[in-house]
Simulated assay, not measured.
Amino acid sequence: MKENAVKDSKQLLLIDDDPNLILLVKDYLEFRGYEVVTAENGRKALSVLAEEMPDMIICDVMMPEMDGYTFVEQVRLDPRTSWIPVLFLSAKGQSQDRVKGLTKGADVYMVKPFEPEELVAQVESSLKQANRLIHHSGTEAEAKPKIQVPFDVELTPTEQKVVQFVARGMANREIAEQLNVSQRTIESHVSNMLGKTGLHNRTELARWAIESSMA
């Protein structure tokens, strides 16, 4: 009972087009003390995110209307939701499937069928990690002065996408794969942004994006 009370405030968004799986996983997670909101595909999940701000997302990969890959890309591009931990559930268990899922923006990739206890353990681990990152970011913000850039800096829509990925710690090669362009193009965008802002490196660019609520 005490364990459940600790988790009462944690809300999970569960997305899957299989109603039986939704029912089973929802019941199990609620039994463990989590509040669970559900959606049957990525498009409906985006509508849920417009109203709710879950602490974590558990998402199927293969779904009608909008699959998990497209959904998570949308989540990661929105500064409001880009920080939310995402766990992919998929029947595809090959190495390339796992790599694709993690590259698309998932934090954890689990293969169906799975043990409910393992799912709970992954959820708890992801929530703890997210909490550590939030506290770490807060400590760093107190310890370091804010990044200063000219007040009239304007980024193009593509540059805004690139800087969000930079703030997530992604390498230029990974960003190029996400946006389906060459690595040289990403390097050019980063260089242009450094020139516009007067910053010295990608680390400062990432800090500025975070402090400016762009990521």
Rank of each mutant, 00 (worst) to 15 (best):
P113L: 09
E73I: 02
I84N: 00
D78E: 09
L89K: 02
V75H: 09
M62I: 08
E118T: 13
D55A: 14
G68I: 12
T103M: 15
I58C: 02
V72S: 06
F71G: 00
I84V: 12
T81S: 14
E118M: 04
E51S: 10
V48C: 04
D107W: 01
L87P: 01
D67R: 00
M53R: 10
P113I: 09
V99I: 15
L102C: 07
L102F: 03
G101S: 02
M110N: 05
M56N: 04
V111P: 09
D67Q: 01
F114G: 04
T81K: 03
G105D: 12
L89N: 05
K92I: 11
V86Y: 13
E52P: 03
M63Y: 11
D67P: 06
F71M: 11
I58W: 02
Q74N: 13
V86S: 08
G68D: 10
A91I: 02
L102P: 03
S95Y: 12
R76S: 07
R76F: 14
K100I: 07
Q96L: 06
W83E: 11
F71Y: 08
Q74V: 04
V99Q: 14
I84E: 00
F114Q: 03
A106Q: 00
M53I: 11
Y69Q: 07
P79E: 10
T103Q: 13
M62N: 05
R80V: 14
R80P: 02
D97N: 12
T70W: 12
I84Y: 05
E51H: 14
K112H: 03
M66W: 12
L49S: 06
P116K: 00
R98S: 01
M63P: 00
V72H: 00
F114I: 00
E117Q: 07
P64K: 07
A91Q: 06
I58L: 08
M66E: 08
T70I: 06
L89T: 05
K112R: 15
V99W: 03
P64R: 13
A91W: 02
S47Y: 14
P85S: 08
G68A: 13
E65G: 02
V108I: 14
G101W: 04
D67V: 03
M56R: 01
G105K: 00
D60K: 09
T103S: 15
Y109I: 01
A106D: 01
T70G: 00
M62S: 11
V75P: 07
E118Y: 04
M53T: 14
M56E: 12
L77G: 04
R80Q: 13
L49Q: 11
L87F: 06
K104N: 09
T70F: 05
T81A: 08
S47K: 12
P64F: 14
V61L: 13
T81H: 12
G93C: 04
E73R: 06
K104H: 15
M63T: 08
I58T: 07
D55S: 07
P113A: 05
D67A: 11
D78L: 04
E51Q: 10
P113S: 05
I58N: 04
I58P: 02
M62E: 13
E65P: 03
P54T: 12
P113Q: 08
I57A: 12
V108H: 04
F114W: 06
P113R: 02
A50R: 13
G93V: 10
M53L: 15
V86C: 10
K100F: 10
A106Y: 07
R80D: 09
